[in-house]
């Protein structure tokens, strides 16, 4: 599908009812406010190429602890603001002196944004099914604007990645992804994610990544069967001389003429 690039200040609609995100309204007209790709659906949106993650309520994110205070864990959530996880939002009763035994500085966790107030105080929670401290695997970072590309159309990309690499995957809305599986598979997945971020604006990305993952498997297969390949080469060697003989004969014939 073709998408038009728009720049800040570009007129994108003359009906102010159409204003979606990445836009602003002036004198009844809708203008783009960010540099990105125009997306016309029931509303007119601009999907930005880049930008910082701004937390909003109910987002699933992956945070890393930067500090433990007397009643809060402070998380770096790749946003201009720090996230706060209060002890009461931890699934179990924790004494304030033992907080760092459960989650310590440097640990990562899958969290949900409980509330964001006017002054951008961000309250996080772990009190929900599926939320947990990350204990194994890897956390990778990528530009938050690429989150939709990694999830794919209706989750197609993520489910494909899960199926092909047999890794557990969780995509945080703040541009962090948690993966867990065998070391080899995680290496492969890391490369695949890098490729998604790099080639995020091309057509048929999911298929391309699928090819990338399956082809890499082929490379591994070939390497493990090097000996059989050698045999094939030897067979070819035996056949080649006949061809050469014929060619040499033909050359000799022509030179005699």
């Amino acid at each position: 599908m073709d998408r038009k690039i728009v720049i800040p200040g570009e007129l994108i609609s003359e009906n102010e009812q159409n204003a979606g995100y990445g836009t602003y309204v002036k004198d009844g007209n809708v203008y783009a406010s960010v540099y990105g790709v125009l997306n016309v659906k029931n509303k007119v949106d601009v999907i930005p190429f880049s930008g910082k993650y701004v937390p909003s309520k109910k987002d699933y994110i992956i945070g890393t602890v930067t500090d433990v205070t007397s009643s809060n864990w402070l998380f770096d959530i790749r946003s201009p603001y720090t996230g706060m996880l209060h002890v009461s939002e931890f699934p179990k009763r924790v004494e304030s002196s033992k907080m760092s035994e459960y989650i310590d500085v440097g640990d990562s966790a899958i969290l949900r944004v409980k509330d964001v107030d006017q002054s951008m105080k961000i309250e996080l929670t772990l009190r929900e099914r599926g939320l947990k401290r990350v204990k194994q695997g890897r956390v990778l970072e990528f530009p938050p604007s690429k989150v939709p590309r990694i999830i794919g159309h209706g989750g197609s990309m993520v489910s494909m990645l899960k199926k092909e690499t047999k890794c557990e995957i969780f995509v945080g809305q703040n541009g962090r992804i948690w993966i867990s599986g065998s070391e080899e598979k995680m290496d492969q997945l890391t490369d695949a994610i890098r490729l998604i971020v790099k080639e995020s604006h091309i057509h048929g990305l999911t298929d391309k990544i699928y090819d990338f993952l399956t082809n890499e498997k082929n490379v591994i297969d070939i390497e493990t069967y090097v000996s059989s390949q050698d045999e094939i080469e030897f067979q070819e060697d035996d056949e080649i001389p006949e061809d050469i003989h014929r060619k040499v004969d033909a050359l000799l014939d022509s030179s005699e003429d």
Binding site: M1, R3, V37, G154, H203
Partner: peptide, 13 residues
Amino acid sequence: VLDVDDIDDEDDE
């Protein structure tokens, strides 16, 4: 004009 596929719906879904 970018040739991009399946950007729509993603943000909502």
